[in-house]
Design a protein around this nucleic acid. Structure first.
Length: 477
DNA sequence: CTAGGGTTAG
């Protein structure tokens, strides 16, 4: 091949093949085939074609979805070299990628480096959603105020960034204020904003507010129904879940995996095995059988309903087991008196390289407690903070009090309570009271009873929302 | 830029 033909081939590949690569990349990313999208991008580079402003966003999006910050940073370099950084489509995808990879400061830097950012709603929106994802509530509010001061248009996506972080406990006051803003901007009936507000209320435990909003929403979509169903499920209102699920089906909506997750978890709580089995058949019928969320919920459902064999079969058949899958099966063995199996599984999980979280420790500690494996439980409790850096919460102390209490080691239980750094809750006093009853310790029982009667407030710290001024009718929109 | 999900003692 002569120099001339080489050059010709090169030119042809960069000019005529570029649109083809872009199309393939876009299609892969839009189908959520992110690994494929990234490998297409690499193929493209190797073939000599040069990426452009229509290439980068899809590659960057794929990094964000796969949580690959290092590849993301490399893409940032490529963007810089090709001079596409000022393209809003490219810039917003980079900001979003940094936000999703928890590199929010990089996102901010990118936003600040481009003076054009402060004129565009989409740039603000991408940074807002990054702050929201990283629970940086104050930054969200400050940025929103800045938008209003500069007169940048506010749209539904802006409000999503504002509403999302209000679902975390303690932010409900701000959330209600934000809801007011949505109404004033006429965006509360925007379906995504409405769904987001609904989720915010149910996550804050304000299930009645959520239901009111749900009933008022004029155009309820599948996501709306799912948000309400899962809201009930997360608040332990399992009967409401089944009722609403029935209503949803009667209205002709077809459930998707998210619907069925909430329904299955409620079946688990109610011990409603027959409904659970019906859901399992539906899963198979709709082709959701390999959904890991649904399989975790299914393992939990069978375990809680007492069918440990079925739970174990599903668990064993799962190709990828997360800490949630392990927690479900460990808890299942634990609550049915097979603490030895639960402990073995817990150790097997650790040997397999899965890091236990606070919930996994709750399930193994309670398994030890039920099976009388007192010292084993004490070992786990010790290792929890020392080895895994997990600070025990009230729920862990409750398990420990239960564990020590059942073993008759009431003084140790008492000492443990006295040494606690977290506030005791009703469950802890209940566990102590139960132990006192078994071991006939009247004096300690009196104390436990007294304490268990104290109302344990849910620690709802309200933001006053005074950072936000009332919106003027003449600004924005 | 873009709304909804699984596991947790008593």
């Amino acid at each position: 091949m002569t120099m001339k033909t080489k050059l010709y081939h090169h030119l042809q590949s960069t000019t005529t093949k570029n649109p083809q690569w872009n199309t393939l990349l876009r299609e892969a990313a839009n189908k959520s085939l992110f690994t494929k999208a990234l490998s297409l991008y690499l193929h493209m580079l190797r073939s000599g074609a040069s990426p452009n402003a229509f290439t980068f966003p899809f590659a960057i999006k794929s990094c964000a979805a796969l949580s690959l910050p290092i590849t993301g940073k490399q893409l940032h370099c490529h963007v810089f070299k090709t001079g596409c950084l000022l393209e809003p489509f490219v810039q917003t995808s980079l900001i979003s990628m940094y936000g999703k990879c928890s590199l929010i400061d990089n996102a901010r830097k990118l936003f600040d480096e481009n003076p054009q950012s402060r004129k565009l709603t989409v740039c603000y929106n991408s940074l807002l959603s990054g702050y929201a994802l990283n629970s940086r509530v104050k930054d969200v509010v400050v940025l929103f105020c800045e938008m209003r001061e500069l007169g940048v248009e506010i749209n539904g996506v802006t409000m999503l960034g504002l509403v999302q972080p209000c679902g975390i406990p303690g932010n409900l006051g701000l959330g209600m204020c934000v809801h007011g803003f949505c109404v004033k901007f006429g965006l509360d009936m925007d379906s995504s904003v409405g769904n987001c507000l609904l989720t915010m209320y149910v996550k804050s435990g304000e299930i009645d507010c959520g239901r009111k909003l749900f009933d008022e929403m004029p155009r309820k979509g599948l996501i709306t129904w799912n948000a309400m169903i899962n809201g009930y499920a997360q608040n332990g209102l399992a009967n409401n879940v089944l009722e609403l699920y029935k209503e949803m089906e009667s209205k002709g909506f077809c459930p998707d995996p998210l619907t069925l997750v909430g329904v299955l978890s409620s079946c688990a709580h109610l011990g409603a095995l027959s409904v659970g089995k019906e859901v399992e058949r539906k899963m198979e019928g709709f082709g959701f059988s390999s959904n890991p969320f649904l399989n975790n919920a299914l393992v939990n459902m069978y375990a809680r309903c007492g069918n440990l064999k079925k739970a174990r079969d599903i668990f064993d058949g799962m190709p990828v087991k997360s800490v949630v899958s392990w927690t479900a099966i460990i808890g299942g063995y634990g609550m049915h008196g097979q603490g030895e199996v639960a402990v073995e599984l817990f150790d097997e999980m650790i040997r397999g390289g899965i890091k236990p979280d606070g919930t996994a420790f709750v399930s193994v500690l309670s398994a030890c407690s039920h099976a009388g494996l007192t010292n084993k439980g004490l070992d786990y409790f010790g290792v929890m903070e020392r080895k895994y850096g997990l600070r025990p919460g009230a729920e862990h102390y409750s398990c420990m009090v239960d564990l020590l209490g059942r073993a008759g080691r009431l003084n140790e239980a008492r000492e443990l309570i006295e040494s606690m750094q977290v506030r005791a809750d009703g469950a802890l006093w209940g566990a102590l009271l139960g132990a006192c009853k078994i071991h006939r310790n009247v004096e300690l029982a009196e104390l436990a009873f007294e304490q268990s009667q104290v109302k344990h407030s849910k620690n709802k710290k309200d933001f006053s929302g005074h950072w936000l001024q009332e919106p003027n009718n003449n600004s924005s929109r």
